[in-house]
């Protein structure tokens, strides 16, 4: 914690960073939340531990860019993947961000409870490298943690075994709950369009009504737009007030990208993007 605060203070003092997007403790609680430190005193409030669930990369495309200095950000390895994805997609430049990598030992699913095998965020099950790479600096220590049951994976396998009609019925029931608050979109580090297709009214591609038809259109479009792009942070599922298991869709899309194209977004900032590149060995048997 002290090492993190020291680095943040130095980055602000030297004007390397204009601000640091990090986590601060919620008063009177072990919970944390996003916090933007703009001076050294505020940098003294930064924390990092297993209660830091948020993927802060979402702020990189939403916060006003500083006139001078970089955008400092505290990033776990999964958050670094989102930052790398944003670099790959040319939304930010590497010299615009100052990345303070934090070694991670897993984060909680329910912040009201301590970290345990049962209370481990789904994304941590899938984590391939708790130590972030390619950051400007790294603090903390990554301790091994016990992986839990892969509930999302199990549910996916179960869904895959259903008939298309049964699967449709499953999603119909889930999407019926959607209230169209767009928390999934707003919490997503890779949903950064200046004008979302859902907000276009001339023509109106997606009904704004939170009816089954409009909800299907919205959630399916979002899944397609994230195909081969989602980095699996699970913020959409966590932000959803209707408890719709959105990660099922994104993970399935990610699995297809891996299976069909051996592609994992956010792995290397020099890789071209999946949908932005072409390879002679790409499947083309579906083209007539």
């Amino acid at each position: 914690m002290e090492a993190l605060q020291k680095i943040a203070k130095e980055a602000l003092a030297s004007k390397e960073a204009a601000f640091i997007i990090g986590y601060a403790r919620v008063p009177g609680s072990q919970k944390t939340r996003p916090f933007i430190a703009r001076d050294e005193a505020e940098a003294g409030q930064l924390v990092f531990d297993e209660y830091c669930q948020n993927n802060l990369a979402v702020y990189l495309t939403r916060i006003a860019r500083p006139k001078e200095g970089k955008m400092g950000i505290v990033a776990k390895s999964c958050d670094v993947r989102a930052i790398v994805a944003l670099l790959q997609e040319n939304q930010i430049k590497r010299n615009e961000v100052y990345i303070i990598g934090v070694n991670c030992s897993g984060v909680v699913e329910d912040p009201a409870q301590p970290l345990s095998k049962e209370n481990l965020a789904g994304k941590c099950n899938m984590c391939q490298a708790p130590q972030p790479a390619g950051t400007d600096t790294v603090v903390g220590e990554a301790k091994p943690y016990e992986r839990a049951d892969d509930k999302v994976g199990k549910l996916l396998a179960q869904l895959d075994s259903l008939s298309p009609q049964e699967r449709f019925a499953f999603w119909e029931a889930e999407f019926e709950k959607c209230v169209k608050c767009y928390a999934c979109r707003q919490a997503c580090p890779l949903c950064y369009c200046e004008q979302c297709i859902a907000d276009k009214s001339q023509p109106r591609w997606i009904e704004s009504s939170a009816s089954v038809r409009g909800n299907f259109a919205w959630n399916m479009i979002r899944a397609f737009h994230l195909a081969g792009r989602c980095i699996g942070c699970g913020e959409c599922s966590r932000a959803c007030p209707a408890d719709i298991p959105l990660m099922l869709l994104n993970r399935k899309m990610g699995m297809i990208a891996m299976k069909e194209f051996n592609y994992r977004h956010g792995s290397n900032m020099d890789d071209p993007t999946l949908v932005g590149s072409y390879n002679n060995s790409d499947r083309n048997d579906f083209i007539m």
Partner: peptide, 25 residues
């Protein structure tokens, strides 16, 4: 309001937020 991401979760789960939009479909 600095860290607000601009979703409508707060208004849509609220028992009294009542703003609405009228659209033709």
């Amino acid at each position: 309001g600095e860290t607000c991401l601009g979703c409508a979760q707060c208004a849509f789960v609220c028992p009294v937020c009542h703003c609405f939009d009228i659209v033709d479909e």
